[in-house]
Write a protein that binds this DNA or RNA. Structure first.
Length: 448
RNA sequence: CGGGGCGUAGCGCAGUCUGGUAGCGCAUCUGGUUUGGGACCAGAGGGUCGCAAGUUCGAAUCUUGCCGCCCCGACCA
């Protein structure tokens, strides 16, 4: 993409109401624009990040055996009356009335709807288990939205729902999502630690929050260093096999958010050198809730003995839009974002330091073509801006590599390559740059 | 939902107390000089001062109502 054609309204000054790094940078880098309290438009650059996050989530859901579908944003109040949540949900639910005075709502979640969809098509235990998901916009009318997309009112979320005949089978689905989440966040370059979550009135041990560590996280977290260092399950892991050992491994050490934290247990269970007290951001939540919806909404299946029983359900959420902010919180410096390759809006920023100069123009065009042909996503700064502005803008939007073509380098027949993650620069011969960068990008995108 | 604050040019702000018809920096446009970390000179454009009603000869400024946004707290993917 040529910057001259793109829409990238970067801000030189920091908007007054952005409190945290990710919000500030998303506004400054022209990724989002606020359209109301907790409501954001995703501008081209931010949209690309969002789509990449979404795609990684999708690939790992598919790998784990979940089946994608799409439910609407608008739902009928009637559905929520069946579960009893229409009145229980309170003011967080955005309620709407249509022209016929029918009560509608903008969905804050989809348990009721998926239960209704499921019960319409499944009658027998032989049709189980099922694992269905969708990625859709939700609306929760938060009293106080803040921190940009980290806590907006409208947000993009992946939610998966599991249906099983009994709790044992449900645990297998729960474990699939557990492992899928470890992989999903790892692919984005994040360290996500599963932490036991409050299961509320339902109880049981089947609820975990996935927390990524970031200095500017919303809440304090405490965990064992061995959890952070644990290797992520590989992509060839058998999702139909027994995943319990993996789950056990990741739940075998102390990890708690501040609500669940117990200082005495922390001191007792974790050796002093392994104690980590950090800040975290919740990016996923998995939850088994049994028959909470299937019972009142009559999602029953016939068991082997011919008797109808309510299905056992669970739900598994990932905050897709929130992750865009979360990743910046984890990867940035004073100059801007430092995107991991897998979610970077473009892999490489090609900077023509002297647009209009015959030599640099020609070289940049060639590089742009060959990199693009090699499958590298390039944002080509072909504008007439001054060098200083170009560098600052590239650092701000934080593409993993910057390839700088200017008169100075041309004298040596070289391009300057800067790696945004650590600021390392090297001069690379012009005839080798494209191959070098393509290999580096490909390497960074590899995962297992 | 309690407490506090703000709404004036694309962005950041001054002007409001003490009424006299709007200003600064950055950005934008034109011309020129520049050109490796956010240039310089000269000129130009851009605002129904959140909306509505009221007081007044006259309202960004005073009064009332409404709308929007932000911050602290309680709540949350």
């Amino acid at each position: 993409m040529r910057l001259s054609r793109y829409y990238l309204p970067v801000l030189r000054e920091t908007p007054a109401d952005a409190q945290i790094a990710s919000h500030r940078m998303m506004l400054r880098a022209g990724m989002i624009r606020q359209e109301g309290a907790g409501i954001y438009a995703w501008l081209p650059l931010g949209f690309r990040v969002l789509k990449k996050i979404e795609q990684i989530v999708r690939e790992e859901q598919d790998r784990a055996g979940a089946v994608e579908m799409l439910m609407p944003t608008i739902q009928q109040a009637e559905l929520w009356r069946e579960s009893g949540r229409y009145d229980a949900y309170g003011k967080e639910m955005l309620r709407i009335v249509d022209r016929h005075d029918r009560e509608m709502l903008f969905g804050p979640t989809n348990e009721e709807m998926i239960t209704e969809i499921f019960r319409a098509g499944v009658r027998s235990y032989k049709d189980l288990p099922k694992l269905l998901y969708h990625i859709q916009w939700k609306f929760r009318d938060e009293v106080r939205p803040r921190f940009g997309v980290m806590r907006g009112r409208e947000f993009l979320m992946k939610d998966t729902y599991s249906f099983d005949i009994d709790e044992e089978s449900a645990r297998a689905n729960y474990n699939r999502m557990f492992v899928a989440y470890l992989r999903t966040f790892a692919r984005m370059g994040l360290k996500a630690i599963p932490m036991r979550a409050d299961t509320g009135p339902i109880g049981g041990d089947l609820s975990h929050e996935f927390i990524i560590l970031a200095d500017t996280g919303e809440s304090a977290v405490f965990c064992d260093k061995r959890l952070v260092e644990m290797p992520t399950p590989k992509k060839d892991i058998d999702f139909d096999g027994d995943l319990q050992p993996v789950v056990d491994q990741f739940t075998s050490h102390y990890a708690a958010t501040d609500e669940m934290h117990d200082d005495t247990a922390f001191a007792k269970d974790v050796a002093e050198e392994n104690r980590i007290a950090a800040r975290g951001i919740e990016v996923g939540h998995i939850f088994f809730f049994g028959t909470k919806y299937s019972e009142p909404m009559k999602a029953y299946v016939a068991g082997p003995d011919g008797k109808d029983i309510p299905v056992q359900m669970g739900s598994y959420g990932v905050g897709v839009s929130r992750l865009a902010g979360g990743i910046i919180e984890a990867f940035h410096d004073d100059d801007g974002c430092k995107w991991p390759m897998a979610v970077a809006p473009y892999h490489v920023g090609l900077v023509n330091l002297k647009a209009g100069d015959e030599k640099t123009d020609k070289l940049c065009e060639e590089l742009y073509r060959s990199l693009t042909a090699a499958g590298v996503e390039v944002l080509y700064d072909d504008t007439a801006s001054r060098p200083g502005e170009k560098f600052a803008r590239m650092d701000l939007i934080g593409l993993p590599y910057q390839v700088v073509i200017g008169p100075r380098g041309l004298e040596n027949g070289a391009a300057e390559v800067k790696r945004r993650s650590d600021g390392a620069r090297e001069e690379i011969a012009l005839d080798k740059v494209a191959d070098h960068i393509a290999a580096a990008v490909k390497d960074a995108l590899r995962y297992d």
